[in-house]
Nucleic acid binder design. Structure first.
Length: 231
DNA sequence: CGGGTTTGACCTGCGC
DNA sequence: GCGCAGGTCAAACCCG
């Protein structure tokens, strides 16, 4: 699988070295911001070219919905045909199918945890209730993908704050947890390296941004393209 | 000094 | 019920 991904030619060439904060820009020769993301996520165009070229997908927001809908409507075994063999997209699914955000991500990474939101958590103290409420997973769209990169955190145009790091079992590479720094934006990102191939970076997103990408990295063309999108 | 990172502790869910 | 593993918190630390 990794070889197929390598063949997409992502991040090849020295001109794509990290620019800041260890972020790596996505190549400019790819055209479509996937899932309403900033141009740095253009790589997603390789996942479902049929969808990208579809007239129904007139903008990034539509693409997001189209992809989400297509995944939600298809059984798991059909995803490969939808997204294309050797797809970079590891997981893309409406959260209603799995209340816990990372369930599919874990699955696609070979994890065994599927998770579950216990709505009937009884007999806890007020403090615990508060924490539970704070921790309760909102059912957000989510997906993950992998790229071949020397740096862990790809520049997707948004500003992230790291809030945790965890050593994952059976891998020497830690998993990092990021949250969008924007107020009221609850999007989270999880970054880890593939145990089987440390060159591959697994990036997982949960939720939709309620704002545009950072102005610092603004690119007028992209901005006009995604001005009303909010992935 | 403000904002981001690190890291150990804590919490929760799941499997046995 | 217990132990394990993953996810989150938050204090300490770092840096511009």
């Amino acid at each position: 699988m990794s070889e197929t991904i390598v063949n997409h030619g992502l991040f090849e060439g020295q001109d794509q070295m990290p620019t800041q904060m260890g972020f790596l820009p996505f190549p400019a020769n790819l055209i479509f911001p996937p899932l309403g993301c900033h141009q740095s996520l253009k790589t997603f165009t390789t996942i479902a070219p049929s969808l990208v070229s579809s007239e129904a997908v007139s903008n990034t927001a539509n693409l997001t919905e189209t992809l989400l809908a297509s995944v939600a409507q298809k059984p798991r075994e059909d995803l490969t045909s939808t997204l294309g063999a050797g797809s970079q997209l590891l997981s893309l699914q409406r959260s209603s199918l799995n209340p816990w955000a990372w369930g599919d991500v874990s699955n696609c990474l070979g994890g065994r945890r599927s998770g579950g939101d216990n709505e009937n958590h009884l007999g806890v103290t007020a403090m615990k209730m508060k924490k539970i409420k704070a921790r309760r997973k909102v059912r957000e769209p989510r997906f993950c993908f992998k790229t071949m990169s020397d740096v862990d955190v790809l520049d997707d145009g948004y500003k992230w704050r790291k809030y945790g790091q965890k050593v994952v079992k059976n891998t020497q590479h830690p998993r990092s947890y990021y949250r969008c720094t924007q107020d009221n934006c609850r999007v989270k990102k999880r970054v880890e390296r593939l145990a089987e191939d440390p060159r591959m970076v697994i990036t997982s997103y949960e939720g939709r941004h309620v704002h545009s990408p950072s102005n610092d990295l603004e690119d007028s063309q992209t901005t006009s393209q995604i001005s009303n999108f909010l992935w």
